[in-house]
Design a binder for these strands. Structure first.
Length: 360
DNA sequence: AATTTCACG
DNA sequence: ACGTACGTGAAATTA
């Protein structure tokens, strides 16, 4: 990057990067930060990559720099001298939705999305003759949405094991056959599905997909034309929350949302999005906590020497004796899938391996 | 301490 | 006419 620009500069300084990209090279301004500065985040750099080589190189640098400074250089320092292991802290009463958070160090954001980042996980290794076992609720949030909304189409699709992201893509793009949906269109379907869980907004979806506002509106319209009960459920939930000023999770935990009646439209709209997301995300976090308790009781009652070592929102990670792999896998899957009875099945996928980076 | 960016669900 | 996708923690730079 020094060679490209022709001099040395602080690559980590957003001020310097802004100056070079937008003053020196006069590249187009894609968006601004909340303070009115020219943003240089990942989305911006991706779009600028077609104009200049620098943003392309910078993107790669940022990925590697993040992995190096946040994980490679820091995690070894967190190894406890007595146990020889890293111990995180789970914060039980921090998040608004009831999720746990993890800190010092955060073990809920160890890389997985990039090939090189995922290598960090290979450093998490089970002790001799033991293995790691991960148990993952698959698409728990869409299942919770199906449960609450009672949407007939979504329930049918879940019972038939339809790929929901491809199904949404198929609906949006001229009803192409579900199993003929390619990877790119499936990703779009996935983002549309997530936009519903997050509390939908055409503007947010358009920005996420990099499409026009009218295109995003069209996608949402098609989505609700298909899943009519979801639309009804969302409208009804907004009305109920305006009356009560709180939502309830599946296990009756209350989350207050006073801004739902704010005269400030920005606050009100944000509260409307939050109330949908809060019901779904909170219910998911209640379910996994109940599973954690059930599994803990089971392991204690049967005097099984296995340890629950991490929780990552919809996933539990255990360290177990290798020889007990089959019996424990089976039992954990059963306990998690039958933790609570919903209108749709809960599905848990189990993976095992010697280290966290290579699990099957 | 605030801001920006980026890692995860 | 607003100005937005939900929930977090941490690192580096800037104020």
């Amino acid at each position: 990057m020094y060679c490209i620009v022709g001099k040395k500069f602080n690559i980590n300084s957003t001020v310097k990067i802004q100056e070079i990209l937008f003053n020196k090279y006069k590249l187009p301004i894609i968006k601004k930060t909340k303070n009115g500065k020219f943003s240089t985040d990942e989305q911006v750099l991706k779009r600028l990559s077609s104009y200049h080589i620098l943003p392309k190189v910078l993107l790669k640098y940022r990925t590697l720099y993040k992995i190096n400074t946040t994980y490679i250089l820091k995690l070894p320092k967190k190894i406890n001298i007595l146990t020889g292991r890293i111990h995180t802290t789970y914060n039980q009463y921090l998040t608004s939705t009831g999720r746990l958070s993890s800190s010092k160090p955060n073990l809920q954001n160890i890389p997985i999305r990039t090939k090189i980042g995922k290598k960090i996980r290979t450093a998490f290794i089970a002790k001799n003759k033991w293995i790691l076992l991960t148990a993952d609720y698959s698409q728990i949030e869409l299942r919770i949405l199906a449960h609450y909304s009672k949407d007939k189409k979504l329930i049918t699709e879940l019972f038939n094991n339809i790929d929901l992201h491809s199904a949404t893509a198929s609906n949006i793009f001229q009803n192409q056959e579900i199993n003929k949906i390619d990877k790119i269109h499936r990703e779009i379907g996935k983002k549309v599905n997530f936009s519903i869980i997050y509390g939908i907004s055409a503007f947010g979806l358009s920005r996420q997909l990099n499409v026009s506002l009218s295109t995003a509106r069209e996608y949402i319209k098609k989505y609700f034309n298909k899943y009519v009960d979801i639309k009804k459920y969302i409208d009804q939930t907004h009305k109920n929350t305006e009356k009560k000023e709180y939502i309830k999770t599946l296990f009756s935990r209350k989350i207050y949302i006073p801004n739902i009646n704010s005269t400030n439209k920005i606050l009100k709209n944000s509260a409307k999005r939050f109330c949908i997301n809060a019901i779904i995300q909170s219910t998911a976090s209640d379910i996994i906590k109940k599973s954690m308790i059930n599994i803990d009781l089971f392991l204690k009652n049967k005097k099984i020497d296995a340890k629950l070592i991490m929780q990552i929102h919809d996933e539990l990670i255990f360290e177990i004796q290798e020889e007990k792999k089959n019996s424990i896998s089976h039992k954990i899957k059963y306990l998690m899938e039958n933790c609570v009875k919903l209108r749709v099945p809960l599905k848990v996928s189990i993976k095992t391996g010697k280290n966290w980076g290579n699990i099957i």
